[in-house]
């Protein structure tokens, strides 16, 4: 018989994970929909569930040296209103889902679900976020981008749980988030874009661009970003076509129920271009 667990402490959760395979569930906003059965029937999961959303010890936001550290069960609504939340992450969360869903959604859930259309990942990739991962015997760090292997696939081992999201503090002279979806609230992105840049004395010192829903994994091309640093905004604007050409090898969208290849590619290009034109 399926034996779900509701651990009270992290230690207890790790102990369960060490014993057998569990599906870790936080707020459930993705998993409950993906595994829904008919009304009035319990959802169909292929493994027992480990309910972790009520682990109070994993709900916090704190500043430590050059990092903002977010407990993995902190909900997005709390992050939206928290003074330590990085500006670009706040901009993204503001347009994600609705107040009701944000109250039970987590960054760790967005990471664990590994959707190519996840919006919070845009900010986490751009901010070079890491995660702390724990098992009973080991604690390890991974960047968010290395942890995500493909649609719904992560490098998390079956005895591991994400305990913390670690974001290096950074400052930008401009940040931008644009989400293209079927509805202002509660939409899954057709394509979405995050751009962060620092322009000082008319020279680009730092630039980061991330795009979702146009490939199996989110796109961030640090090689292209590096090539734009130490240039003036005008030099970059004159070179837009070459920059888009460089991105085109990564922007490989698919057709699905939300949008199609051509629209996604065209829109992703326009979002990059529009951001570069604001520099």
């Amino acid at each position: 018989m399926v034996r779900h667990r509701i651990p009270v402490t992290l230690e207890e959760a790790l102990e369960h994970l060490n014993e057998t395979t569990y599906k870790i569930i936080a707020g459930g906003t993705d998993l409950m929909v993906q595994n829904r059965a008919w009304s009035e029937l319990p959802p169909k999961f292929d493994a027992p569930l480990l309910f972790c959303f009520n682990l109070e010890a994993l709900k916090y936001v704190k500043e430590e040296n050059a990092f903002i550290k977010i407990g993995s069960m902190t909900d997005l609504e709390t992050l939206l209103h928290h003074p330590l939340t990085p500006e670009i992450l706040r901009k993204v969360i503001y347009e994600m889902a609705s107040p009701a869903i944000r109250k039970v959604s987590t960054l760790s859930g967005n990471i664990g679900n590994a959707s190519p259309a996840a919006d919070s990942l845009l900010a986490l990739y751009a901010l070079d976020a890491k995660v702390e991962i724990k098992s009973q015997k080991e604690t390890r760090l991974s960047t968010v981008s290395e942890l995500i292997l493909g649609p719904r696939k992560t490098a998390l081992k079956q005895n591991e749980i994400i305990t913390e999201i670690i974001i290096p503090k950074s400052s930008f002279t401009q940040t931008c988030f644009v989400k293209v979806g079927g509805r202002r609230a509660d939409a899954i992105s057709k394509v979405a874009f995050v751009g962060c840049a620092s322009v000082e004395n008319n020279v680009i010192k730092d630039i980061r661009m991330t795009i979702n829903a146009v490939a199996a994994r989110l796109i961030r091309r640090q090689d292209i970003e590096k090539g734009l640093c130490e240039k003036t905004p005008d030099e970059v604007k004159q070179n837009v076509n070459a920059i888009l050409e460089a991105y085109s090898t990564s922007i490989q969208p698919i057709d699905d129920q939300r949008s199609n290849k051509d629209y996604r590619k065209y829109t992703a290009n326009n979002l990059i271009k529009a951001f570069l034109n604001t520099l």
Binding site: G28, M32, L49, F51, F53, I101, V104
Partner: peptide, 10 residues
Amino acid sequence: VNSCILPLAN
């Protein structure tokens, strides 16, 4: 909170 996607455990 939306109760239709909230597991009872939560």
